[in-house]
């Protein structure tokens, strides 16, 4: 098992390297001259000054030299500077990534627990009241846009009831854990709702499929309790496809939560990516893209490990 994990982890390195090449050249292929972004549209700058500016940012060297310079710096821990504000990219990431992680992991945990539990209960009580409630939640969660749900939540819990803050991540008066946590509740919940319904559907279907398998009959015929049939025999088999959904939601939660971040004015990384893209801040774009690629790779390794733990056929290399 240790060897299996090590092998999977080592595979990340060459893949990240390839992705870094793609990211770098793709952005530079767009032909958008980074220097032109620096100059206000109504200012006339001489060609010499432009060249000087280019030389200053190292943009006059051949592309491959620039690439190795960039990747070399990254390996040394220097992610470069934003060409818009001059802040180092490392600082931007250090400021926004924890906020994003907070939200993403919170949503992931909440939606996994609620989604799987409801899905399993729906499957066990198929066509019963629990199942109908579950199916209603599933339809609601998938069909309601996130921003709409977020606005409703703000309207009810922040404006009408005044229980929770409208947005933001923290304020100067923050002391206790609850002070911080109350900022998290609404955005996490909003982020979770769509995923709860997806997970509910998947775990319900997966569980129903497993419950029809012959080995469930074998298990029942041993005389064991229904609880044991469901948890020991069915759930572990039903979880495998559900795990794929959960794990591959992670990069999406990290890179794609622009809507949530703007509805709740949450200072996360998606906002930074959107800002950098519109202002052509290529050092920020490149590093954040690389970061999301890394999240996807780590997620897929994580998925391999979890799958192997759940299923001996994968662990022992028969599939």
């Amino acid at each position: 098992m240790g060897k299996f994990i090590l092998k999977k982890c080592l595979m990340i390195i060459p893949m990240l390297f390839i992705i870094s090449v793609l990211v770098f050249f793709a952005i530079r292929m767009t032909k958008a001259d980074p220097v032109s972004w620096l100059i206000p549209a109504d200012v006339v700058v001489s060609e010499e000054n432009m060249e000087a500016l280019r030389a200053r940012y190292g943009l006059d060297a051949p592309l491959y030299v620039q690439y190795f310079r960039w990747i070399g710096n990254i390996l040394r821990g220097d992610f470069g500077k934003s060409i818009v504000g001059g802040t180092s990219v490392a600082t931007i990431i250090a400021r926004s990534l924890p906020a994003t992680f907070e939200l993403a992991f919170g949503a992931l945990i909440i939606s996994s627990v609620i989604g799987i539990t409801l899905g399993v209960l729906s499957a066990i009580h198929q066509n019963g009241p629990v199942d109908y409630i579950g199916r209603f939640i599933a339809v609601l969660g998938t069909s309601m846009p996130q921003f709409f749900f977020g606005i409703i939540m703000i309207q009810i819990f922040a404006i009408k009831l005044g229980w929770l803050p409208i947005g933001g991540r923290t304020d100067p008066s923050v002391v206790t854990f609850w002070d911080r946590a109350k900022y998290l509740i609404l955005p996490t919940l909003t982020m979770s709702i769509a995923m709860i319904s997806t997970l509910l559907k998947y775990s319900r279907n997966s569980m129903l499929e497993v419950l029809n398998k012959d080995y469930i009959k074998t298990a029942r015929m041993k005389g064991i309790s229904e609880k044991r049939v469901y948890i020991t025999h069915a759930l572990r088999n039903a979880l495998r496809p559900v795990m794929v959904i959960i794990i591959f939601r992670l990069p999406l939660l990290i890179g794609g939560s622009v809507v949530i971040e703007s509805v709740f004015s949450w200072p996360g990384i998606s906002t930074q990516i959107v800002g950098a893209t519109t202002s052509g801040d290529y050092p920020v774009i490149m590093v954040t893209t690389l970061l999301i690629a890394a999240t996807i790779l780590v997620s897929s390794v994580l998925l391999d490990i979890i799958t192997a733990l759940l299923d001996p056929r994968v662990r022992l290399g028969k599939e």
Partner: peptide
């Protein structure tokens, strides 16, 4: 049961 391939829990 009929099919031994599927009557044992694979995990």
């Amino acid at each position: 049961f009929q099919d031994p391939m599927s009557s044992l829990n694979p995990v």
